[in-house]
Design a protein around this nucleic acid. Structure first.
Lengths: 199, 199
DNA sequence: ACCTGAACACCGTTCAAGT
DNA sequence: ACCTGAACACCGTTCAAGT
């Protein structure tokens, strides 16, 4: 079973993305696959649709990394930490692809398959969090809310580092230290189980 | 004292940014100011430099919002909450300008004046956090680290909402609820003052 | 169904020239 | 010092045509 032309276009686009999103021109993608400069239009509606397909594939990779961490770790907390490490590593190794998935204005609310994969990745991460709650490592707050807080915070740390806004001078030297701090905060807190109002 | 041509170009670019970063073509900017399509080059090195100037101005606005919150609120915690609310409101009202400041790959590590303003905004936010620590509302951890954690988490929440990745279905419905949850976690935790190792 | 080549409108950037 | 107009290379997208 050979790779379809569409798949090869996505692979080529992902490869070019390593040089930044601007490097992904339809002409360059087509050339890399060995087709004429407008052949991509027979497989994708436009440039955005091709980029969405790359993000879709990457969300699946992320989901798989989370699932793998869950299956192979010896404790829920260890699994979560492995998942977080994979998330961070992904952002560092593929910054443009990471930004495409999470921060690209073109791909906003495109719905479709990419959105579905994005949600599956989020849910796989949520399973890691739920496991930590089940063993009492984390407070028994609403799982979705807790997952969302950790997931967003992690994204913020990664995104600021990618943008160069996280330098030692700002105290943002290590994402790892920051996320560990966050987990520590969560592990030691027991009050969230009850009602949730402060003000 | 009239606005300089450079200032008018920045203002025009900021205005066009409301329609997305792609709407900011040098030709459109020049036209809005009433100049020929390449007049901007006499004031800015290239398109990136003009966008950086917009971000620079916006970081100053953000810093001023933080400073204002600090001066006008009746308690450190109230000041921090006001600052956070301003941060969130800014992201929602000017998504493209927000993304330009924090997540634009073109403006990475450009150094220069924008980087300086970005740090001033971060430091102004840090003053709000430090005040909360001084009154015992927050643990006496390293202020920069604590500031960075809150700042990044907040950014992550805002960025994911702007990207449409924060829907009710994911439990990310309200940035306000999430940031309140984070502050609650911080307020109730006292252990961070001591040594910081978990694993 | 899938691909090609020509063409269009648009853009960032450079350059020679004007005042 | 600041601005203009022409020009270049490049890009997304469309269309008519081929197999």
């Amino acid at each position: 079973m050979n790779e379809s032309t569409a798949d090869r276009l996505v692979t080529a686009a992902a490869k070019l993305l390593e040089d930044g999103v601007d490097a992904v021109t339809l002409r360059a993608v087509a050339k890399l696959v060995g087709l004429s400069h407008n052949a991509p239009y027979k497989h994708f509606k436009d440039r955005s649709a091709l980029l969405a397909a790359v993000a879709e594939r990457d969300f699946l990779l992320l989901k798989n990394a989370f699932d793998h961490a869950r299956r192979t770790s010896r404790s829920p907390l260890a699994a979560l930490k492995t998942g977080i490490a994979a998330f961070i590593a992904y952002g560092r190794e593929h910054p443009a692809r990471y930004r495409l998935m999470f921060s690209d204005p073109e791909l906003v609310s495109q719905g479709g398959a990419m959105e579905a994969r994005a949600m599956e990745a989020f849910q796989a991460f949520g399973a890691l969090v739920a496991d930590c709650q089940a063993t009492g490592s984390f407070p028994a707050t609403d799982t979705k809310a807790l997952t969302a807080l950790i997931y967003s915070s992690l994204h913020g740390l990664i995104d600021l580092e990618l943008g160069g806004r996280a330098r030692e001078s700002k105290g943002l030297g290590s994402i790892e230290a920051m996320s560990a701090l966050l987990l520590e905060l969560l592990s030691q807190n027991r009050i969230l189980s009850g009602t949730r109002s402060l003000d």
